[in-house]
């Protein structure tokens, strides 16, 4: 479980707060989508969860972040990383090896996992990410989507309870993006891993995430179940967040007095809404 209490942070030398009084609780087994415009503080929040803030990046830090009961100000990132793993935006920058297998081994070796256990962990992490066949391949020869899954497998091999991902589908096409999210869903549902994912693609979040958190200028402005958050579509648009077109359509229909039901999030719900609106009397 993650508990953030009035968490704030200002990078040294910066004028404004990157994080400003964040209160957030993430329960075990959650699948939380984190959304907001650029500069809203999403990446800094990921850093704060992993202990990179305040241990690696210095600045004014206040409030409290507890990861599985550990206070992030007192525990170093490598301690926190036993329970919380991070996958960052720049896929290539975070790779440390040239072959897939070695990339997975890196963390296991560092954490001193017993030798007889390592093989099983590597096999399982690769299987869970759906990339067993890539084990001996060169990372530089893989597609963006495959590389992203290698990064995810390198983290899951360490068996963290929580995985935080910062825009994992940034440079991927729609199919590869979906596959990454399907992998996350499986980790979440089958292995009970808590997932926190920063993502701009609202449609993916609407489909896969259970809860949404919206950030604006360092503050958390909305948090709750996906449909509930989407009901505040106007607030989302003001924060520079894209909303699904069917939701936009529903709002326009409401303004015309044609529709009074709940806002649809996906195509199926959009279709149901339109059938209701167009129903012959």
């Amino acid at each position: 479980m993650i508990q953030l209490k009035n968490l704030g942070f200002r990078y040294s030398g910066a004028e404004r707060l990157a994080l400003d009084g964040i209160d957030l609780t993430v329960e075990d087994g959650a699948f939380l989508g984190l959304i907001g415009s650029s500069g809203a503080g999403k990446s800094t929040l990921c850093y704060a969860l992993s202990g990179i803030v305040p241990h690696h990046y210095r600045g004014d830090f206040y409030g409290e972040a507890r990861i599985e009961g550990m206070d992030s100000a007192e525990h170093r990132p490598e301690e926190l990383s036993r329970v919380l793993g991070c996958v960052f935006q720049d896929i290539d920058g975070q790779m440390v090896a040239s072959v897939v297998e070695d990339e997975i081994l890196f963390g296991l070796e560092n954490f001193g996992v017993p030798r007889d256990e390592i093989e099983g962990r590597v096999t399982q992490a690769l299987a869970a990410a759906g990339i067993s066949e890539l084990r001996g391949r060169l990372i530089s020869e893989l597609s963006g989507g495959q590389r992203q899954k290698v990064a995810i497998a390198a983290i899951t091999a360490l068996r963290p309870k929580i995985i935080v991902l910062d825009e994992p589908t940034g440079e991927l096409d729609p199919r590869s993006s979906r596959r990454v999210f399907e992998t996350l869903k499986e980790l979440n549902e089958k292995h009970g891993v808590t997932i926190i994912v920063v993502e701009q693609k609202i449609m993916l979040l609407c489909e896969f995430a259970k809860r949404l958190a919206v950030m604006e200028e360092g503050r958390l402005i909305l948090e709750g179940e996906v449909p509930a958050v989407l009901q505040s579509a106007g607030r989302l648009e003001a924060a520079g967040v894209n909303i699904p077109r069917v939701t936009t359509l529903a709002r326009a229909l409401r303004e015309e007095g044609l529709y009074g039901g709940k806002l649809p999030l996906n195509l199926d719900e959009g279709e149901a809404m339109m059938r209701e609106v167009l129903r012959p009397c």
Partner: peptide
């Protein structure tokens, strides 16, 4: 890049 790599290595227990 190097910054990203350093953070990622640190989080995977580089110092341990």
């Amino acid at each position: 890049r190097i910054e990203g790599g350093a953070i990622s290595a640190e989080l995977r227990g580089f110092y341990l």
